[in-house]
Computed example of a mutant assay.
Amino acid sequence: MNIPQTIRERRTIRKFNTTPVAPELVVSLLNDAVNLYEDKGTCRWRCLYAGTPESRHRLVESMMTKMKENRFVKLMPSKMIDFFIKRVTEIPAHLIFIAESASDRRQSDENYAAVCSVMQNFQLLGWECGLGALWDTDPMFQNESFLTEIGLQEGERFAGILHIGYYDKAPRARRRTPAEQKWTAIGEGGKADVLQSARVRVSTQSILEVLNDAVWAPNDGLREPWRFIYVSGSEAAGKLLDSYGNTSSSFLLIVAEHEEDPHKQEEDYAAICCLIQNVQLLVKSRPWYARRSIPEWIYDLDQCKVFGIQPEERIVAVLELGENDRSLQSESSPPPLLNITHL
């Protein structure tokens, strides 16, 4: 896969043709999507697949329960409602992703980040095969009937539905804000332009090149809810180095803007998780790495203030940036078994 090109060219597809999607292809793409996610180990999400006419119809009926109760929808002619149901039912396949429950907020975010990363990988891999997808989290569909249909358990987080199918025409690209316009550097008097190493120097320009591809992440309405804080060679970096123990590292904090609407908050968090996954895919061909983590201290606003984090913001993840050193890389663990069931 040409990762930069695919990330930039992928589009959200809202109109699918009637070409069937082979279930074997869906499973194969899911397995590949899991393998592309670097943080392997215990599976922290599950997935339901609706690919038969019966399961698709049952899913859409459960999604429409709350919508039919809406007073504006009640004024619509029944033929229009039936047309909508028919249109969604005819989408060849639906994948419902659910993040597993967790005992604390940090682990819950870890699980949610994992499922969002796999969903993004699936979209990119599907695009390479001519498959389009629509990531759907519409709160209108999140009603008791729908949640019962997907078997959402207490503590689990619904991450979204990927409506999947082949398409005849992709939408035109919409401009993204350059990463430079959302970039802040904290360093040695503004001189921290490189990651210091005896063998490799990674310029901020190289990091920005990666980010300018990574910002082509799916996000509803192109809200672009992120900003980037590059930390190197300062007291703030020292605080991070104490946590990571690698004196050659610098760090990139991925920060989410505040959104009043809880549903948009969740969507924005998912979009930033996709951006981070894009970064990790993009650096695979480079002589440096970007290792994602969600440390406990990011949930303490007082500890975040040193990096200029405002009360209406939150750090989503910390990317440790450094040179590749195979001698320091641990052996990769086998990928988790695919946790997919048929609806």
Results as ranks from 00 to 15, higher is better:
D82K: 14
D82Q: 15
D82C: 13
F83A: 15
F84N: 11
I85Q: 12
R87K: 11
V88F: 14
V88Q: 12
V88Y: 13
T89Y: 04
T89G: 03
T89N: 12
T89R: 08
E90Y: 08
E90P: 07
I91M: 10
I91L: 07
P92T: 10
P92W: 09
P92Y: 10
A93M: 12
A93F: 09
A93H: 14
H94L: 11
F97L: 12
F97M: 14
I98Q: 03
I98M: 00
A99Y: 02
A99W: 02
A99D: 01
A99S: 10
A99K: 00
S101C: 00
A102E: 05
A102Y: 02
A102W: 05
A102Q: 03
S103M: 06
D104T: 01
R105E: 15
D109L: 03
E110V: 15
N111R: 02
N111Y: 06
Y112D: 03
A114C: 11
V115M: 03
C116H: 06
S117C: 07
S117D: 06
S117Y: 07
S117K: 09
S117R: 08
S117M: 07
V118I: 14
V118E: 09
M119H: 03
M119G: 01
Q120D: 05
F122I: 13
Q123W: 00
Q123T: 06
Q123N: 05
L124V: 08
L124K: 08
G126K: 07
G126M: 04
G126P: 06
W127D: 06
E128V: 10
E128P: 01
C129V: 12
C129D: 14
G130K: 12
L131Q: 09
L131W: 01
G132A: 04
G132I: 03
A133N: 01
A133V: 00
A133M: 00
L134N: 14
W135Q: 06
W135L: 07
D136Y: 05
D136C: 12
T137A: 03
T137R: 08
T137G: 01
D138N: 14
P139D: 07
M140T: 08
M140L: 13
M140H: 08
M140A: 14
E144T: 13
S145E: 13
S145N: 00
S145L: 04
F146R: 03
F146G: 01
L147K: 12
L147R: 08
T148R: 12
T148V: 04
T148C: 09
E149L: 11
E149K: 12
I150S: 06
L152W: 09
Q153D: 04
